[in-house]
């Protein structure tokens, strides 16, 4: 097998809160291949966005510590200088953000914002840049591209602005695309168009894509592989069909049970006990999900939970999945451990 496009090994990203550092990403290893969409799922505070920002070192350096290896095309970029990172950002690695309404500079015309990334990474004349920008706008499905070029962000709808953000991300044909909740702020019909667009990018550019989302429906539609994160760690990773057909980790199973489905009607939704603790209070020892499934006996958890291979490409953290069963919020509802 060829080397992965992106190989993250034992990454730990810690943020400074008051005077101490707390790991928001804690010992994460992940591979992303060319022509592959890897989804990272979890609730807010699980570390998925921190992981995405760590890859290109987008965090404020003064309040962040990073350990571990991130190799991109076989080069370590975890310890790259800001100049080296600036050469990767926007050219080899493109990023798409959650809120298209705030992601564009309100005082710059659309054309200028796309051209900036072309100017930084390619040798092009002014005319060539403009031509390429209009092409890009058309590529992401923006009608009247020549006019939109001269418009300001506030003149466009949310869906159109997200297309502009995508145009910026793909302007220099990146080989890795990181999309952080790209459709969360959009209506469902616009969402499906944007997802189509991202899928098309993968098919045409064969890029590797990291898709960060909390929406399991989006994961099911888009991903080739799925990593589920909880409290800064990956708790389960599997090919997409395997994950939905045969989820193992208690957190994955709980998440799947708590989403209201548009396709069939459940009487009650499953509620995960407790809350995700704030970063300084994250449990750092033993199984991190333990406190939210207190009816599972202590001895089935591992002291130092490791990833266990349970199928081809399917890994689960901690042994507690073997003995996990649901218990309803009022204690009576048992969904059974299938």
């Amino acid at each position: 097998m060829t080397d992965p496009l992106l190989h993250i090994q034992r990454l730990r990203t810690s943020f400074k809160i008051k005077d101490d550092y707390y790991a928001a990403v804690d010992d994460v290893s992940l591979e992303v291949n060319k022509n592959e969409i890897v989804a990272i799922v979890g609730e807010s505070g699980c570390g998925k966005s921190a992981l995405a920002a760590s890859i290109t070192g987008l965090h404020n350096k003064e309040r962040t510590k990073m350990d571990g290896r991130i190799s991109f095309k076989n080069k370590d970029i975890a310890n790259a200088s800001i100049n080296q990172l600036n050469q990767l950002r926007g050219s080899e690695i493109g990023m798409i953000f959650q809120d298209p309404l705030t992601a564009l500079n309100p005082l710059m015309i659309i054309g200028e914002q796309i051209e900036e990334t072309l100017m930084l990474h390619q040798k092009m004349s002014r005319q060539e840049r403009k031509k390429r920008t209009v092409e890009l706008l058309k590529e992401v499905g923006i009608p009247r591209a020549e006019q939109i070029y001269y418009q300001y962000p506030h003149q466009l709808s949310g869906g159109m602005r997200q297309r502009v953000v995508i145009a910026i991300a793909i302007a220099n044909n990146p080989s890795l695309l990181i999309a952080d909740e790209p459709t969360t702020a959009l209506d469902v019909t616009i969402q499906s168009q944007i997802l189509d667009l991202i899928r098309k990018l993968k098919d045409e550019m064969h890029a590797g894509i990291i898709l960060i989302t909390h929406d399991l429906g989006v994961v099911a539609e888009m991903a080739d592989r799925v990593a589920v994160m909880y409290a800064g760690q990956i708790v389960e990773i599997a090919p997409v069909i395997e994950l939905f057909d045969n989820p193992k980790h208690p957190y994955t199973r709980s998440l799947l049970q708590s989403v209201p489905s548009a396709f069939d009607k459940q009487e009650r939704l499953y509620v995960i006990q407790g809350v995700v603790p704030p970063l300084p209070n994250l449990p750092r020892e033993g199984c991190r999900f333990k406190s939210r499934i207190p009816w599972i006996p202590e001895e089935v958890h591992e002291k130092e939970p490791k990833m266990h291979e349970v199928g081809p490409g399917h890994f689960v953290r901690c042994t507690c999945y073997e003995d996990f069963h649901f218990i309803g919020e009022d204690g009576g509802m048992n969904h059974g451990a299938s």
């Binding site: 987008l58 800001i82 990474h121």
Partner: peptide
């Protein structure tokens, strides 16, 4: 702001970020 983060993700240098993106918006 998000648009500054986006500018960083484009590979814009800090000097240029302050000159082109932050300064004008802050002067308003």
């Amino acid at each position: 702001k998000d648009f500054v983060l986006l500018a960083r993700s484009k590979g814009v240098s800090e000097t240029r970020i302050y000159r082109k993106h932050i300064f004008r918006n802050s002067l308003l």
